[in-house]
Amino acid sequence: MNSLYYQKRLSRNIGDKFFTSLSVICALIAILPLIFLVTYILIKGGSQITPELFTLEPNPPGDDLDAGGINPALIGTLIITTIASIIAIPVGVGGGIYLAEYSKGGAFSRFIRFGVNVLAGVPSIIAGVFIYALIVSTKILFGSMYSGLAGGMALSILMLPTVIKTTDEGLKLVPNELRYASLGVGASMYTTILKVTLPSAFRSIATGVVLGIARAAGETAPLIFTALFSYYYITGFGDLFYEMGSLAVLIYNFALEPYDAQNKLAWAASFILVLSILSVNIFSRILAAFTEKTKRV
């Protein structure tokens, strides 16, 4: 009779209690520092934000008076990420189209899919080393060594696997009936892809690509010896072929300076970088959740 009631002292119940509290403790240990980290960045960095920050050049470290702003780095990050996107998106979407629409699961497509996964796991600094050997040290780009262009190329290597994967997976989710219908009314393969399958997978592909761009914007390792850093305003097209600053490299350089003013600039840059990356992430998540809901109806 008694055995039908919950018995506190039973060893299995004690064990269950123990492990439950253990997992709660794990979750707390895991999450508390993370919450602390984010709030610290937002508060410490947010308190450094001034209007001049967005318009001035950073002053070279040394005088501990005024650090200046981060305008060149901000613009540099935008330019370098744009260059990376211009290279990685067409190549990645094209490759993804081949994998999802044309390949028939043969050895070639299996090899490429495998290669995409391997490339995604290549350490980001290796991409920088590769571009350094290929472009910076050979001065192949019109005799310029370190340049924003080289930095953009290094970043594009990191973006490429993400773009291919999301295109491939997004296209695979498009129901085959759409393809049959399109081909059935006499459309050619490329019309089918460009007018039917790509548009219907557009949102999921766009979400993945935007997330990939956001990730690339925060990458530092591939830039430190391809784009290097610059203290000066970006004034024209020709600046693409010279050293170019970026927020990520600015944080790295100025965090290691012994001067307080530079450190503060690094916090301000982190604030801007983290805030924009997080908002892109949150926005695309909401968008993805919304799409999923409308599709299921």
Partner: peptide, 12 residues
């Protein structure tokens, strides 16, 4: 979301 924070910021 935390996976999206750039490592250079973590270093700082």
């Amino acid at each position: 979301l935390l996976a999206a924070i750039p490592s250079v910021v973590l270093g700082l």
